[in-house]
Design a protein around this nucleic acid. Structure first.
Lengths: 355, 355
DNA sequence: GTTTCAAAAGTAACCGGTTACAAATGGAAC
DNA sequence: GTTCCATTTGTAACCGGTTACTTTTGAAAC
């Protein structure tokens, strides 16, 4: 099936030159005479020659490949669950990274790893030399694993804690986003009591968002009751279950449920609907991320917009700068901004009519 | 920053053996004496040695990397658009492919290419020797480009036309899915007139779905009016715009709008809501794919379920079998099945109450 | 037609592994 | 202590490129 690919030796022979000359033609060295170059080019075309990037990478020590590692999700019994959850956010980043990498001539090597992976971070470690640099998403590497990787390869952490000094970090401005969200809820909607739907506890983004919520609440003199902090796992399905339990448990609901991401907001709204609660009339719900679907939900979701693809692109830019030895800030924080729609109570009457 | 990585020569020197012995220790050759192996292993551990996969790949002619090529979407002026559209479907496939590839010890090289890419399919061609096989999504390769790639590398086309004999094809059973959808709409809801929201015309899936709709309609003696076939582009945003135009144009709506994917159904429902039309009371709308979010929409979307991650996994399995020289069917068709929810009219009264 | 020297092209080592083949080793049998 | 041979280990070529260094070329100047 797969026929033997021609090498520069084949090209050299056909063109009647040495391999060095073929290599020079490949790399646009200007010291080649036009006649010679043409001869080589013709031979390459006739043989349908494509240079072997692996060999090239080995000899030049540069592969033109960036690695992107993300958290491995073990396959669960219910396959639908696997598909349903933790998608979107990571995916948009993958796309953003791929696009920016391609723009700079790099391909992207995808690698799932992390504590839930049967081999831990071994996949990542093994590919270290196949890759010119790593972009690693939140939760893949523990704090003490970071130096181990960054010692050998330039490393950018995404959505990480932002405290490593052996790697670069690109993160979103959780604080600013939550702060404007709380301000809006307090000043426009008079919210006094806040609930929080938590992502996985260890996640730096989750930690930052909860802390930001507490800080903002304190500044506005409003409260976040510990009983209204719902432990969850970033997923819609999880949020649906946890919200139902919470609703059974609590008689006295807060004014708003601030969710750490959009997926969980979707699940929460669904669970509330099932109990006969209407959003935002009975309780407001907000998200974080502004995934594409957020504006099409009923009610349309009020959320904090972050551009995941821009974050992916930024991570690539930081990594390339680091690889080039240019000075780069240790931590890059990308702006987020409040995206007001209906689930906070704004234009609520329109929702009533439409539904 | 990045320190020089140790090579097998360093390990050999430290262990006091030859590089061949180190290589044997690396590859678990059984002819090594336990004493020798231990010596080598200790040296590797002391140096924190990680074998260079690029060198390994060059010498063995096998990289343990699979390539996944998908359609390049040019960056548009409005960045939100880029994020919003054509996501999900491709992304779930990417995840499915990654997971299955990893399970077999392969990494995944991502590559966007195709006619909309500034370099066309050159990225794909250039990486041919970096990869042990290609999985290429719909619309990346034209029919005459397929043999050019498959000549050098095993090739699996996903969601393609399924007519190439130089490559393997993995596709979903569009016919069966549409057929049961139409049967349900006719027999349960008494639908007589069908509209169709079309994906991009060239896409094999789109062609197959429209043809299946026409065939099924004919079998049931119901109609698809050409004026109710809406040209669109797979995206929510596009569907929103096209649906609005269509509603302005048509006075006499069909009973159902069958959409070629879920994203477009979402956009269509939104546009209908904006015109004061209620789904499914005034018109039923159905999707295709069953993206995770479909069940959380209002109304919950009736659609044809296909498991994109299973399709990704299947593509990997076919590719690996082909690489191993095992006999593989030229075309693999994965089952799809009707997922009835509310947007077709089922349990419509519940929606009325809930809203 | 020589000489001269910058420009062009060739030779061979190297990147870091694998592996065919050759050489060395060591335990058993004599 | 030899001999013998299967087992273990070492040597060196090779994978397909790049590139430092050397040699050749050829146009200009004499």
């Amino acid at each position: 099936m797969a026929e033997q690919a021609p090498t520069i030796y084949d090209v050299a022979e056909r063109a009647g030159v040495s391999v060095a000359t073929v290599s020079r033609a490949l790399n646009d060295v200007e010291s080649l005479r036009a006649v010679t170059r043409d001869k080589v080019m013709r031979a390459m075309a006739e043989l349908d020659f494509v240079p072997n990037n692996v060999a090239r990478g080995l000899s030049r020590g540069k592969n033109w490949v960036l690695g992107l590692a993300f958290m491995h999700s073990p396959v669960r019994a219910n396959e639908a669950e696997v598909e349903a959850d933790s998608l979107l956010y990571t995916d948009i980043i993958i796309r953003g990274v791929e696009a920016e990498a391609a723009r700079h001539g790099y391909s992207l090597l995808l690698c799932s790893a992390g504590e839930e992976h049967p081999d831990g971070i071994a996949p990542l470690r093994n590919l270290t030399q196949s890759v010119d640099g790593w972009i690693v998403l939140d939760r893949v590497l523990s704090a003490d694993e970071v130096p181990e990787i960054s010692r050998r390869t330039p490393l950018v952490l995404m959505a990480g804690a932002g405290e490593s000094d052996s790697a670069y970090t690109v993160r979103v401005d959780n604080e600013g986003g939550i702060s404007s969200l709380v301000t809006h809820l307090v000043e426009v909607h008079g919210a006094r009591r806040f609930g929080y739907m938590s992502g996985l506890n260890e996640s730096p983004d989750n930690v930052a968002r909860l802390r930001a919520l507490r800080d903002s609440a304190r500044r506005h003199g409003v409260s976040v009751d510990d009983a209204d902090i719902i432990s969850c796992d970033w997923t819609s399905g999880g949020a649906e279950v946890q919200t139902a339990r919470w609703l059974d448990r609590r008689v006295d609901l807060p004014d708003v449920l601030v969710c750490a991401n959009d997926q969980m907001a979707i699940g929460a709204i669904h669970a509330m609907g099932a109990k006969g609660l209407k959003v935002p009339r009975d309780i407001a719900v907000t998200g974080f991320d502004d995934i594409p679907i957020a504006r099409y939900l009923t009610p349309a979701l009020t959320t904090v917009r972050q551009s995941s693809s821009a974050m992916g692109a930024e991570a690539v830019d930081v990594l390339l700068a680091a690889m080039a030895g240019e000075p780069v800030a240790n931590t890059t924080t990308l702006a987020s901004r409040l995206q007001v729609r209906h689930s906070c109570g704004c234009r609520g009457e329109l929702d009533e009519v439409a539904s």
